[in-house]
Each structure stands twice: as C-alpha cells, then as structure tokens.
Design a protein around this nucleic acid. Sequence first.
DNA 1: TTGACATAACACCTAAAGGTTTCATATAAT
DNA 2: ATTATATGAAACCTTTAGGTGTTATGTCAA
Lengths: 106, 106
Amino acid sequence: MEPTKKHDVFQAIADKTRRDVLRLLAEKKELPISAIAAHFPISRTAITKHLNILAEANLVQSRKSGREKIYHLHPEPLTELKQWLSFYERFWENKLSILKHVVENE
Amino acid sequence: MEPTKKHDVFQAIADKTRRDVLRLLAEKKELPISAIAAHFPISRTAITKHLNILAEANLVQSRKSGREKIYHLHPEPLTELKQWLSFYERFWENKLSILKHVVENE
DNA sequence: TTGACATAACACCTAAAGGTTTCATATAAT
DNA sequence: ATTATATGAAACCTTTAGGTGTTATGTCAA
C-alpha cells in the first residue's frame, strides 16, 4: 500500500522557518544543508528535519555532491495552493479579479 | 502586552478539516456550530476548537442569534496567502504568468 | 415552569511538532 | 594516516494539536 505522504503542501508552509527556508532557496538557487542552517538560530539537525518535511511535500529537491547534500527549490507543488486559493478569490472584492478571470479563461 | 495571535492564516489552513469548514461556509453562506458539526465525523467540541482557530486567523466571523452562534466566511486574510504565493509564481513556468504580471502592474 | 436544545467551559488523553544533544559514518584536505 | 568537515541517525524533552467526554449555563418552546 502507498505510504501516503505524511506532509502535504499546506502543512509544509504552515511553519515560518520552513517558509524562510523556501525564500532563501529561491534567492540563492542552491545551498548545502550547513549553509542553510547558518541562516537560522536553530540547530542544523532541526533544519534537516524541516528540509525533510519540505522534501516530502516536494517543495525542495536535493542532489549529493561529495559529502554535501545540496538543496534547491521545487516550486511546482505550490500550484495546488494556487488552485485552492482561486476558489476563494471570487469571495473577496478585488477590482482586478474580474479582469484576471478573463485572462485566465482565455 | 498584545496577546500576539497564536494562529495565523498559514496554520489555520494547514488542517484538512478546517479547509473543509471554510469550503462549507463558502457554500452555505452562514451556519450555526451544530449545523457545521453535522457535516463532520468528529465531535461538536472539536469543531468548536477548529472554529476558534479559524476565527483567530480572522478567516471566519460569528454573530449570536438567540442560543445559536452563527458563523460565516471572512476570506480577506487569504490575500496574505495570495501575496506570499505571488512571489513564487515567477519561479515556475506558466505561460500566463507574464500576461498576469502585466495586468496586475497596470 | 419544565424540559429540550445550543453552546461554553473543563479536565483529560495521545500523538505529533519542533527542538535539543550525542554519537557514528563518509568524504576531503593536510 | 590523520584530522577536519558534512551529514545521518538515535534518544530524548516539552509543548501543542487534535481529539474525547462531562458538566454548567443560557434560551426557546410547550
């Protein structure tokens, strides 16, 4: 039976530290674990756990290079979030929303 | 000192049940607690807790009517999520994204 | 005014989240 | 060969998340 991923996109981005990691990877393109951890006040081990959760949600990917494990952003799963959001956009008045709907449905 | 809200939008939508509650309120416009709870397999008490978390994030609001407490959707805080997302949109190739940027920055 | 209903307020439980420290292992550099 | 570096893995701790059930209180209806 499929192991049914424990963490989805919604849970992955619920934590501020993980959002900060995503932002960092967006800016720096790719970084090994230690370099990532250096940006935060918590331990490298804690960062590794956050990276595992992000990887489970497929928001980051990694490659091994020698003794380093280098992570990079993989933003595609955010489309799920975008889709979820789009349902609610019609509920708040945004003068641009009508125009955007026109564009998106073209 | 300000009580500093414990739950923000990101945490509020991390839970599937809470997302389902939001969806329900989007469809039914407004509902008392018991009516909401009737749609889920968990206890009314549990639903109340979820509603409190959603209310903390300001994603729902309520009014008292006699002995009932009637909740309705308040989607505005989702703009924060939308803004957060918009940063990452440039990172995944979407043929529409360029066009949308043009529209949004007009 | 009595009973039913809707919610609030507790006390309580279990598991997971987020963090720590310590130790082991693989690779790189001297 | 030895040492330093990068990561993995395990054991542990504390708080929170998500759920339960029970009891109390306010309101409506008969």
